[in-house]
Write a protein that binds this DNA or RNA. Structure first.
Lengths: 200, 200
DNA sequence: ATATAAGGAATGAAGGTTCATTCCGCAGGA
DNA sequence: TCCTGCGGAATGAACCTTCATTCCTTATAT
C-alpha cells in the first residue's frame, strides 16, 4: 500500500514520488538489489533518506509497487492494438513483436523484473507465469484455442509459453547487453521462428 | 583460488570441503544469496564459521568456485556420448536431452546457476553465453555448420542459442517448480519443437 | 500559528571476516 | 609402549561495515 498524502493537489508530491520510483528502478535494474540501498535511492532521487518512508511503508512496499506497475505496463503494451478477431498467427505475432519492442525500448524494466524474479521478493510469484494475470487470461486463451484447432502442437500451456516467450526474452537480454542488434525485420524473423516451434 | 592444504592424504579435509560446498550450493539454490549467510553455511556443513576461510579466501571465492564446477559439470554431461559424426539433428537432440535430463536430476545446480547469473557475482559473465567456453566451442561449431549447410535459418549464433536453449531451460524450471511433469517422451517432443524453430 | 512535508543524523540489526585460543594427530625420545 | 612437544586445523566470539528504519529538527504552506 502506498501511503496517502494530504497534498494531493500539489505537483511536488507526485514529482518526488516519481523520482524515488525512477531512482529505485534504475539502481535495481543496473546494480541488483545489493547495489540499491535506500540511502543511495534517496540520493539519486534527490530526497532525504527519511522522505522515502513518507511515500512507501518500507523497501518491500516500494519494490513490490514498482514491480506491479512494470508488470501492468507489459500487459498494456501487448494488448494495445491487439487484433482480437484476426487469425491466430497474426495475434501471436502482434503479442511477440509488441513485447520485444517494448522490452528493448525499456531495458531497465526488463532488468528490474528479472532481478525481482530471482530474489526473495519473487518467491510468491514462482508459481505464476512470467507475467501478470491479466495477460495470462487473454493469451492463454489464444494458445488454448490454437491447440484445439490443431494449429499448435498438443502440448501443455506452460511448455508452449516456454517455446514462445523463452527465446524472445533471451534475445531482448542479448540486445540490451549489446550482444546482438535487433531491428524490426529481425524481430519478425525470430517471432516467426517461435511460431515454427509451436506449429503442429 | 582455493587454498592448498598440507593434509592431502587424510580424508577429513576433502570431506569438510565437500560439506561446505554442498551446504552453500543448497542454501544459495533454495534461498538465494540473501538466505545463505556464512554462519548458516557453516552450521549446515557442521563446521565452525572460521573454518570456511581455511578452504576459501572469502565468500566470493567460495561462490565462484562452486559456479565454475557446476558449469564444467554441464559441459561434461552434454559431451558424454556426443555422436560426433552423426547428422546435425542427432547431435542437437543429444545435447538438448542430455542437458534437460541433467538439469532436472540436479535441480539445485540449475537454481544455483540462475541465482549466480542474476547477482553481482555474475556481472562479468554477462558477456558470455549461458554456459562455459568448452561447450561453446563444440556447440557453436555445430550450429555454425548447420547454418552453412542451410539446415538452420540464417540467423546469428546468439539468436539460434536463444531459440534452442531458452525454452529448454524454462521447461526445466517449470518441472522443478512442479508446474509440469517431464518424462523422456515429453523431453523428446520439446527438443523436437526447438529443432523446428531452428530449421530453415 | 499550526500542521504537514522534508531532511538527515542516530539507531540497531545483520552479516562477512578476523584472530586469539583450543583441539588433534603424530613424531621422537625414554 | 608411553609420554611429551610440536604444528597445522578448527573454532566461534568479537569486530567492523553496511543498511533499513526511526525520530527529532527544520522548512513550508495554509
Amino acid at each position: 500500500m502506498d501511503k496517502s498524502h494530504k497534498c494531493d493537489k500539489t505537483d511536488k508530491c507526485a514529482e518526488k514520488r516519481e523520482a524515488i520510483i525512477q531512482a529505485a528502478l534504475e539502481l535495481v535494474a543496473e546494480q541488483g538489489f545489493h547495489g540499491a540501498p535506500m540511502a543511495m535511492i534517496a540520493e539519486k532521487a534527490g530526497v532525504g533518506a527519511g522522505t522515502i518512508y513518507r511515500y512507501f511503508e518500507n523497501k518491500d512496499d516500494l519494490i513490490r509497487w514498482i514491480y506491479k506497475n512494470v508488470e501492468e505496463r507489459f500487459v498494456e503494451v501487448m494488448m494495445q492494438g491487439y487484433p482480437e478477431d484476426g487469425p491466430v498467427r497474426e495475434r501471436l505475432v502482434h503479442i511477440g513483436t509488441a513485447l520485444v519492442r517494448h522490452l528493448i525500448s525499456e531495458p531497465l524494466q526488463l532488468r528490474f523484473v528479472e532481478q525481482f524474479h530471482n530474489s526473495p521478493y519473487g518467491v510468491d510469484h514462482r508459481r505464476e507465469k512470467i507475467f501478470g494475470q491479466g495477460r495470462k487470461d487473454v493469451i492463454s486463451e489464444l494458445f488454448h484455442e490454437a491447440v484445439e484447432q490443431q494449429i499448435f502442437k498438443p502440448l501443455e500451456l506452460a511448455i508452449l509459453f516456454a517455446l514462445f516467450f523463452g527465446p524472445l526474452i533471451d534475445i531482448c537480454r542479448d540486445h540490451i547487453l549489446g550482444f546482438i542488434k535487433l531491428d524490426d525485420a529481425l524481430i519478425e524473423q525470430v517471432v516467426g521462428a517461435c511460431w515454427d516451434a509451436l506449429r503442429r
